[in-house]
């Protein structure tokens, strides 16, 4: 081996390490910048504090956590059945050449920048909720009011945004179910619907579940769309038409004008976000691995 090749090999190794190191570097810097506030303020009163009033020096992020959770679960309730149905439709029902076109359409959905979704929500969904949905809602709850900037608007847009994730991973795991399963089920006299519901979906369970977890991670981490349409009010929500502030939206909005302590508090919000997302990702990775090992 020529000597320069050894050098090249080293450089390549460094590149490989560099691409990994960034995760560590990100972790170190986020924690380094956010920990002081967590220490001074106390982890519990930071996470469970009900008041986010940075100008008064009050940094309780529980309203933000509630905001993120409500929008995320709303998105999951809408997005997951739709996504799984879509995957089943693609794999089991549509002929494969049409399914291909459908699939590239869904992939297109994934490529649209989040700020465009946010703008669409702002321009269409928010006014629609204010003028069309509110009167219907008021039939049941006459006292309800809304500006349109709401959990509902955020949940609908996020649901559309997580669809590509849910559809493509569920679809892959459905397609990976061995053909014998289908044949065996049909041979036993089950019809196609029964085969899908009782054989295929259970067999693809772990893949579908990991798509749900990844979709959830995407919804929690999404910033620009929710920033534009949830109203950014750091108050615990009471109905789905209330405005909320999310963890991500608060960071993006307040970072540019924050004082040093406030900035550090925003980094601490980042820590909370980071930990949640990491746990979800690791869970999804383990799930996928189990899926791979099971076959």
């Amino acid at each position: 081996m020529k000597s320069y090749e050894k050098v090249i090999e080293k450089i390549i190794l460094i590149c490989a390490i560099l691409s990994t190191l960034s995760v560590g570097l990100i972790t170190v810097f986020i924690f380094h910048s956010g920990l002081p506030v967590l220490k001074d303020y106390g982890v519990l009163s930071f996470i469970f504090g009900m008041d986010w009033k940075p100008t008064n020096g009050q940094y309780g992020i529980f309203p933000l956590i509630l905001g993120t959770l409500s929008v995320t679960f709303g998105a999951l309730i809408i997005g997951i059945p739709t996504g799984i149905a879509c995957a089943v439709f693609l794999v089991e029902i549509l002929p494969s050449n049409i399914a291909k076109i459908f699939k590239s359409a869904v992939e297109l959905l994934a490529g649209i920048p989040s700020v465009v979704y946010g703008f669409f929500g702002l321009a269409v969904l928010v006014p629609a909720i204010r003028t069309y949905f509110l009167p219907i809602y008021q039939i049941f709850r006459p006292e309800a009011t809304t500006t349109g900037f709401s959990i509902l608007a955020g949940a609908i847009i996020l649901a559309i945004m997580i669809l590509p994730t849910v559809v493509s991973i569920s679809e892959n795991s459905l397609a990976a179910v061995p053909h014998e399963y289908r044949e065996a089920s049909l041979a036993l006299g089950a019809n196609k619907r029964e085969t899908i519901v009782k054989v295929l979906i259970p067999a693809a369970k772990s893949g579908i579940l990991s798509s749900v977890i990844l979709g959830m991670g995407r919804a929690i981490g999404e910033t620009m769309a929710v920033l534009l349409i949830t109203g950014n009010m750091p108050v615990a929500p009471k109905s789905m038409l209330d405005s909320v502030a999310t963890l991500t939206g608060t960071i993006a909005m307040e970072m540019s004008y924050a004082t040093p302590t406030h900035q550090s508090a925003l980094f601490a919000v980042g820590i909370v976000l980071f930990v949640i997302i990491m746990l979800l990702n690791i869970l999804a990775q383990l799930m996928m691995k189990r899926m791979g090992g099971g076959q």
């Binding site: 990100i26 990844l214 925003l266 980071f274």
Partner: peptide, 10 residues
């Protein structure tokens, strides 16, 4: 899987 806002913070 790390959300973009975390990259931004970093």
């Amino acid at each position: 899987g790390i959300p973009s806002i975390i990259f931004g913070l970093f």
